[in-house]
């Protein structure tokens, strides 16, 4: 096994080991943190499909993260108050079942990504960055000013939603759910990158003309990647909302988009496991630096700057030495 492979394995094992140790030591909050890392890493894996594989620098992925969160919040709040979501033309009830919520989140995220992507992908480069940012802001302001679902106050769900056969309120069981989904997403993203679609997408990133000559439309390839990316990020959003039992417009803010991107960069661009390493480091920094200084964002900024300027490979790159990154 290559050095990168070993590091990936170690990273992958780190989360359940941490959670298991925390369970033994009776430190449930550490399990909650590990769950948070798994969920944020999932969001990073989602963005990485667009960003790492497709070369689409989206600064608006918080939109999908928030849509997933609101899918959970809206469905669960209707179930909580026993008010149907819709009565005409047909009855739609709220739900407290995680699998149903996930399905709705994924579909909603995919549809939103289809709409935003169809428009944004008409542009490239810096236009694309700014447009995705602007669409994210549009949804953010909409969520704040639309009073039906709490506006800026957000929505509180008092009990975590259920999963058949599990007690989701038990931190370690909820961690298990998040971790399994992360593992599946990593596996899926790996398969996607190696599939003909993934290879064509990579090729379109490096040389658009080459893809066009074999009869593929780069626009369609990218749109599909963007939709998959949005759907995965929305799933992460639904889980994140369930972790907090709360959803608010902050999940849609552009700082959130920036943070998801930071996970990828801290871990290492173009690395499948980069978001896992990046999210873990981010949460660690938040809790270590945040405890030391009220101004920990300054240190986070400096660290990020150093990584971008001098350590392109991020954590995995630094650990794996000069080995070439595989997409």
């Amino acid at each position: 096994m290559s050095r990168t492979g070993l590091i990936n394995l170690a990273l992958f094992a780190m989360l359940p080991l941490t959670a298991g140790a925390a369970l033994m030591l009776d430190e449930p909050f550490i399990i909650t943190l590990a769950t948070k890392v798994a969920i944020l890493a999932l969001a990073g894996v989602g963005l990485n499909i667009a960003l790492g594989l497709g070369g689409l620098v989206s600064l608006g992925h918080a939109a999908f993260f928030g849509i997933g969160g609101y899918a959970m919040g809206i469905l669960a709040s209707h179930a909580q108050s026993f008010v149907p979501l819709m009565e005409t033309p047909f009855l739609i009830e709220g739900t407290r079942s995680m699998p149903v919520i996930w399905l709705v989140a994924v579909i909603a995220g995919a549809l939103a990504a289809l709409a935003i992507g169809a428009l944004s992908l008409r542009t490239t480069g810096v236009y694309f960055i700014m447009i995705t940012l602007a669409f994210g802001q549009m949804l953010y302001y909409f969520a704040i000013s639309w009073p039906a679902y709490g506006g800026e106050d957000g929505l509180s769900i008092y009990v975590r939603n259920g999963f058949p056969g599990l007690n989701t309120l038990d931190p370690i069981q909820f961690f298990g759910i998040a971790f399994v989904i992360l593992a599946l997403a990593l596996w899926g993203a790996g398969r996607l990158a190696a599939s003909p679609f993934g290879l064509a997408l990579s090729a379109a990133r490096q040389n658009e003309a080459r893809v066009e000559t074999v009869g593929l439309s780069p626009y369609r390839l990218r749109l599909l990647a963007f939709v998959i990316s949005g759907a995965v990020t929305a799933l992460a959003g639904a889980l994140f909302a369930d972790l907090n039992r709360f959803v608010s417009p902050t999940m849609l803010s552009w700082q959130m988009s920036g943070e998801i991107m930071i996970f990828i960069i801290l871990g290492g661009v173009g690395r499948l496991y980069g978001p896992v390493a990046g999210a873990a480091l981010f949460i660690l920094l938040e809790h270590v630096l945040g405890g030391l200084s009220d101004f920990w964002h300054v240190y986070l900024g400096l660290l990020l700057l150093l990584v971008v300027l001098f350590a392109r490979g991020g954590i995995i790159g630094a650990l794996a030495g000069r080995e070439v990154a595989h997409d």
Partner: peptide, 8 residues
């Protein structure tokens, strides 16, 4: 990313 870091 670098300019985002500068904002922070």
């Amino acid at each position: 990313l670098a300019t985002f870091a500068l904002i922070l």
